[in-house]
Design a protein around this nucleic acid. Structure first.
Lengths: 111, 111
DNA sequence: AAAGGATACTTTGTAATACAAGGTATAGAA
DNA sequence: TTCTATACCTTGTATTACAAAGTATCCTTT
């Protein structure tokens, strides 16, 4: 990912936002993000799984194993009540922050 | 700064965007960013000065000392030609990235 | 049948960087 | 005199995305 540093701080937010819509597992989350963003954000496994573990450890999401018919186990995650509250907060924070950066960065010189 | 991680990757961009408008020195840049963003982004000195040094070392901006009447030295920075090219690129990148995050994070469930 | 790719999860080590906390120095206000 | 604002600097730390490696299954292609 060439926007490596940009991703920091917004990855957890995106993961929580996706999991909020219903139980999802890691691999699918990565695919969803690629699809939604036209490959602008292409999450690597070394980022994705540690981030999910981190969020689970913090109590933001909770994971559970689900066995498919073919015997393959997948770890689904859903958002917790605490996670929902933090998500709402972080969503607002992202709005403020991205608007602030855009303002500073915007082509138009001040005034 | 409570949005510490969010800032990563966008700080250099903001500094270059401000310096693009004309020579500015560090302390003033921090004040400008606070003013423009209504204190949403409050740059700490431990972030600001190393970031300016980094950008200068990379050849994105160039600094020069200017002495005020009272004898105080200030280090002004202006953007370089190379920096201007990179800034244009990063500005576009920021647009793509922030739009992508906003899409993933947006309240509306997909479809 | 063998090879490759997609699916699906995991781990270890590394590089990058915002910031806390300390420092220096001057000028003006309380 | 003490405090605040101005203006710069540095060292050490915590965080975290990612590269790279591994495990295992299934399906498609050669």
């Amino acid at each position: 990912m060439f926007e490596r540093e940009l991703l920091k701080g917004s990855l957890g937010l995106m993961l929580m936002a996706l999991v909020e819509q219903g139980p999802m597992y890691g691999y699918l989350i990565a695919k969803e993000i690629r699809a939604l963003t036209d490959d602008v954000i292409d999450l690597k496994e070394g980022s994705l799984y540690p981030a999910l573990h981190r969020l689970e450890k913090e109590g933001m999401i909770e994971g559970f194993w689900q066995r498919r018919e073919d015997g393959v186990d997948r770890r689904y995650y859903r958002i917790t009540a605490a996670g929902q509250a933090v998500l709402d907060e972080r969503r607002a924070q992202w709005s403020r922050f991205s608007a602030a950066v855009s303002k500073v960065v915007s082509d138009a010189p001040s005034q």
